[in-house]
Simulated assay, not measured.
Amino acid sequence: MNIQIKRIYDAPDASDGFRVLVDRIWPRGMSREKAALGEWDKMIAPSSALRKWFGHDPERYEEFRKRYRKELEDNPETEQFITLVRQHIDEGSVTLLFGAKDREHNQAVVLREFLEEKI
């Protein structure tokens, strides 16, 4: 299984496979053409309240991780997203795209971990 994570501001690459933005808000300064998305799935992103609470503070990351996983478990959109990822993994790789500057403490890291457990 090949699920990658990448900042949306990084240049697209052939190895990305199916590219899906997992942010609720469109990244500043990024055009849809440059993003080269297969999909933008706002509904799988953390809730606005959780995103604002986290504020990309690394000290809150572990609690954010727990809360976001709970949101994923409770989200009726999650099963559909898992199915979408499964379909594209069968064809190659999937890249989860995020806009945050911190590459280690963000929702894409948590989502990839969650997907790897479910798929």
Rank of each mutant, 00 (worst) to 15 (best):
N2Q: 10
N2P: 11
I5K: 00
K6Y: 01
R7A: 08
I8W: 01
D10W: 08
A11T: 15
A11W: 06
A11S: 14
D13Q: 09
S15D: 12
G17H: 00
G17T: 02
F18V: 00
M30I: 15
S31I: 02
A36C: 15
K42G: 11
K42Y: 12
P46I: 09
S48Q: 09
A49L: 12
A49E: 15
W53H: 09
W53D: 02
D57C: 12
Y61V: 04
F64G: 08
R65V: 00
K66E: 15
Y68T: 03
Y68S: 05
R69V: 15
K70W: 03
E71K: 01
E71D: 12
D74T: 11
E77G: 09
T78Q: 03
E79C: 08
E79S: 14
F81V: 05
I82K: 04
T83Y: 11
V85Y: 06
H88A: 00
I89H: 02
I89E: 13
D90H: 07
E91G: 10
S93W: 12
S93Y: 10
T95G: 09
G99T: 03
R103E: 15
R103L: 13
H105R: 01
Q107F: 03
A108V: 02
A108P: 06
R112T: 02
R112V: 12
R112W: 10
E113W: 02
E117R: 09
E117P: 06
I119C: 11
